[in-house]
């Protein structure tokens, strides 16, 4: 029973790391209906910028602040050069634009900051803690706490600020929002900047775990089943989806893996996502599309 509990808790905590990545997707999808393929590249770019600034001798807080500024400037540039010219184009066009954008960001990152692998020390020890007989990772606990704080901040931003109300209006009905004078371009800039900051948080935590290197952009693969399960339009859904994926793949690897050859975590998450697609196509917290026919 102890081992089961340990696996379950470990899985839930690991799932919050997936949620952190998924939240970045949700923000942009909510505001513009675009599945941002470049989220992984943004995550990599943010972490790489932070580490590069630290290598120049900047203290943690200043490096963090400057990285936030860089990501905000990046958001404005993306909105001006990529999104604005494509406004009113189909979703697949915007998706393809973000696909191209991901390669541009990765190439730019390597050109500016080099391809070498960097260690990232956030000062959080990756050591086991024992809650009774159950072992949990201190690092995972910090990651889970970070996700909780991030969700709280985003909830405040969306629900208690004028910008948040505008964001929700755009997400609910873009045309209606435009008709009452909401500046869509400004909203997109803000959303992409916030998604960049979320990418920075996720990038720092994933970077501390695996090093800051180009494969960091591959962590988005873990976010896709999370989004399918939780829904593309709900931050709460991203959290719930992450927890479900984390717990399920950990339990499956330990209890099912030995019977079917092991190494099942990557595809098991997608298998689970497929099951959810059958039962609840919009995800647990996603908005159901209702159309008049």
């Amino acid at each position: 029973m102890t081992f089961f509990l340990e696996t379950l808790i470990g899985g839930l905590l690991a799932g919050t790391m997936y949620s952190l990545v998924a939240i970045g997707f949700v923000l942009i999808y909510k505001a513009s209906g675009v599945f941002n393929f470049a989220q992984g590249a943004m995550l990599l770019f943010a972490a790489l910028t932070f580490v590069s600034l630290q290598e120049q001798g900047l203290p943690f807080a200043l490096a963090l602040l400057l990285t936030v500024v860089v990501m905000a400037i990046g958001a404005i540039v993306i909105e001006r050069t990529v999104l604005r010219p494509l406004v009113n184009r189909s979703q697949i066009t915007l998706f393809m634009a973000t696909l191209g954008l991901s390669f541009v960001i990765e190439g730019l990152a390597q050109g500016l900051m080099g391809a070498q692998v960097r260690a990232l020390d956030l000062g959080i020890e990756d050591v086991p803690l024992f809650l009774g007989e159950v072992m949990v990772s201190q690092f995972d606990l910090v990651a889970a706490a970070t996700a909780a704080v991030l969700v709280a901040v985003l909830a405040l931003l969306f629900n208690r600020t004028r910008i948040g109300v505008s964001l929700r209006a755009v997400a609910d009905d873009t045309r209606a929002a435009l008709s009452i004078g909401i500046n869509l371009n400004r909203i997109w800039q803000i959303v992409w900047a916030v998604a960049g900051v979320v990418g920075l948080v996720a990038g720092l935590l994933w970077g501390a775990r695996q090093g800051v290197q180009f494969s960091l952009s591959l962590v988005v693969l873990k976010a896709l089943p999370v989004l399918i399960i939780g829904g593309f339009t709900s931050i709460g859904g991203a959290i719930a989806g992450g927890l479900i994926v984390g717990a399920a793949e950990n339990l499956a690897e330990v209890y099912l893996g030995p019977y079917i050859g092991g190494g099942i975590t990557p595809w098991f998450a997608y298998f689970l996502a497929l099951v959810f697609l059958y039962i609840r196509p919009a995800g647990l917290f996603g908005e159901r599309a209702i159309e008049r026919v």
Partner: peptide, 20 residues
């Protein structure tokens, strides 16, 4: 023999099994 799926950026479950 324990397989680890690539790219391998999350291996908690695998190493929990190995520790056993």
């Amino acid at each position: 023999q324990v397989p680890i799926p690539l790219p391998g950026n999350e291996q908690t479950a695998v190493w929990r099994g190995i520790r056993q």
